[in-house]
Design a protein around this nucleic acid. Structure first.
Lengths: 238, 238
DNA sequence: ACAAAAGTGTTCACAATACACCCATGC
DNA sequence: GCATGGGTGTATTGTGAACACTTTTGT
């Protein structure tokens, strides 16, 4: 069977390319939340979906994500990385659409800007109580949640979901929420401290109610990249 | 600043979508090799590039990879997974092309079919002696090599690069070649055996030259998936 | 003084590492 | 019988896991 070289005989067909963002936020009370938008037009009108839209010819994929997130929700990105590209022929009933999905983390203030923005159709949903989603967005979210849980244990992305300064108890609560199991406080603090990527601040933060105030920390991003370049790994099994 | 909802005012522009495959093969003598094709037309004509081509409207991304690999090189895929989507606006000088790249492993027989196939412009290159590549394919390869090295330590993909049956020494040599460091034979065998995913065959294989024949093993894929479903991890640090 | 949350150190179990001798075959 | 590669066990070390009391603050 002789291989064909059809690429040069038939002009290739351009396809619609979209970006979709799985945006995670975190708050102590509600745990991890997901940012969704309500569709106004087209198929699945009225259903909740991931924020996103079509890529323009002159912009990079990341620029398209930033633009769409800004337009639709107004949130400020703390961390962004590509997740996966979904391209099943039937994923959009109208026509073929390739979706490059992105994994986004935002800080807690993003969960409160909701009322400020014009995007009345954007809302946060607790990860445990998501509505059913348009298209294959449920599958995209499942992929993103898995990535978040895995990544948390070997890269310092938890910090991107907290305020710039945080207590170790807050950090631990985030880990416990995402990994869905309790962690021993002594072991957690020993492990985190041994990583040597946190700056201990002179200030403390009062606990809600009474109790001893907790020391505040800041993630030393530059220090982390330096250690990483020298081959040190992150590794928070716990 | 009021968010715009331009998506419904301006028709989205379709873009060219390609798939590119980073195909790894392995042989004891040459180590890990990469399958490349020589470009005949268009920009970078004469340069070596990753096998790949444009996605057709009715086929899935994976189907496009299989088809292009079959057409251009005739190799049979042993393992395939999506790698990353490269979409910088200037990555193709002619026009905007989004490339969804795939990570492919093939068994050693694929390294020998080269002469059989019509694709006279397909060739294997040792990973340590790659030519400079067309477009951003060098970047794609770098991403794939990193993925291969990481994945080798926490998923059983090494087996996909060997014959169906193999000796532990062969498996160890593959690990040493990819991880670029010697591994203690006793510790390696202890670790691999403890994973309980290999079937010990009654046959042995004669070593090249003299020496005691080595026992042959086969990867028990079903057993691995079963263990994985029960939560056991793979984890070959070594 | 008591309730609430923060901070801290030691013991134990297991897994990774280092390491050397005997076995089966070809010549 | 010797050269070549294959197969195996143990002692040591390091790391993760389990575990409870003291300190600081508010009321």
């Amino acid at each position: 069977m002789k291989p064909e070289r059809q690429a040069h005989n038939v002009a290739p067909t351009p396809l619609l390319v979209a970006v979709d963002a799985v945006v995670f936020g975190y708050e102590a009370q509600r745990g991890v939340s997901l940012l969704l938008v309500q569709r106004r037009y087209g198929p699945h009108a009225g259903a909740w979906a991931l924020p996103g839209g079509f890529v323009r010819p002159e912009e990079s994929l990341e620029a398209a994500v930033s633009r769409e997130l800004e337009e639709e929700t107004g949130v400020k990105i703390s961390y962004l990385e590509q997740l996966y590209t979904f391209g099943a022929p039937e994923r959009d009933p109208r026509q073929r659409v390739i979706s490059v999905s992105y994994f986004v983390l935002v800080r807690p203030d993003a969960l409160r800007v909701q009322a400020d923005t014009d995007a009345a159709d954007a809302a946060w949903f607790a990860l445990e109580a998501l509505p059913s989603l348009a298209f294959d967005h449920g599958e995209i979210v499942a992929t993103a949640v898995e990535r978040l849980r895995n990544k948390l244990t070997y890269e310092p992305i938890g910090f991107e979901l907290l305020e710039e300064t945080f207590t170790l108890t807050e950090l631990q609560a985030l880990y416990e929420s995402l990994l869905r199991r309790p962690i021993d406080r002594r072991n957690f603090q020993k492990k985190i401290r041994s990583l040597d990527i946190l700056e201990e601040l002179p200030e403390t933060r009062k606990s809600p109610g009474s109790g001893r105030p907790a020391r505040l920390y800041r993630f030393q991003r530059a220090r982390y990249f330096e250690l990483q370049a020298r081959g040190q790994l992150f590794e928070v099994w716990i």
